[in-house]
Amino acid sequence: MSTTIAPPTTVPASAAPAQLSKETYKGRIHPDWCPGCGDFSVVAALQAALFELGLPPHQILVVSGIGCSSNLPGYMNTYGLHTLHGRAVAVATGAKLGNHELKVICTGGDGDGYGIGCNHFVHAMRRNVDLTYIVMDNQIYGLTTGQVSPTSVKGMKTKSTPHGSVENPINPIPLAIVGGATYVARAFSGKQKHMVEIFKGAILHKGFALVDVFSPCVTYNKDNTYQWFNPRVKILEEQGHDPSDFHRAIDRGSQWGDEIPIGLFWRRTDLPTLEDLEPVLHDGHGPLAWRKLGLSNEQAQALIEELL
């Protein structure tokens, strides 16, 4: 008994070293974000980080949800999945397990990740899946023209909270630290060079990395603007913060007001990833996605024996 396999078309796997430039990572579509949107800085920083790390574009998969910022994969020249509202992290987890040799980067907004997608976000963190999750946090729903978001500051007036929001916002930094993420950082669109370094650290990190990026919405959020953030953001790396200090990380991550820290709050490298813990991925047969299908005669026989 041998399994019949109609071989799929195949393409050479390892590429000849091509000349990579920062331009290589740029998609041919120009972003349709509003002029001045913080997301321009994020996509540029991501392209720069990937270039500086020298990662071949075909080995990168960028997965997004839905929202202004989730259009990002279309502006990259890497593999991309532009999925459903809130579902990027779940899709990305499946993709990472399907082919654990891919570098999988998730991108989206605060509504996508901390609102509708919060369940997947929390569970991906506790699993410590090896993903980089970049959340372009503008504290507003932009694509639906300006409603309150899970990170909108209490009291914020939006189209859905005309008298001011009465709800407390989520603070994703302490949430991620206690949730089990093993690399927790924040960046700001006004500090792109710093963001590139944070992204590089996140992409190289083995485990779940969250980078919450203050990415101002210049159209619908008139409160949390570049001008508002600029004097407030303080770079942790310039302040001697120790990212292995759990309690200090929570304290600094909880800070809001006149001084708002950005940078790497928390990192631990002693925990295995979900992929590390699954023997199925480590039997020497490469990614699940590319394995031979079907059962061996011995496997088939053993299954049938169980029924007798």
Binding site: A6, P8, V11, A15, H58, Q299
Partner: peptide, 23 residues
């Protein structure tokens, strides 16, 4: 259990290391 497996028009890497432009 010896069922035909037909994957349709699927393009997978062939693993033989020949060149293709990664971008």
């Amino acid at each position: 259990c010896n069922v035909p497996i037909e994957r349709g028009e699927l393009i997978l890497p062939d693993g033989n290391g020949a060149a293709a432009d990664p971008s």
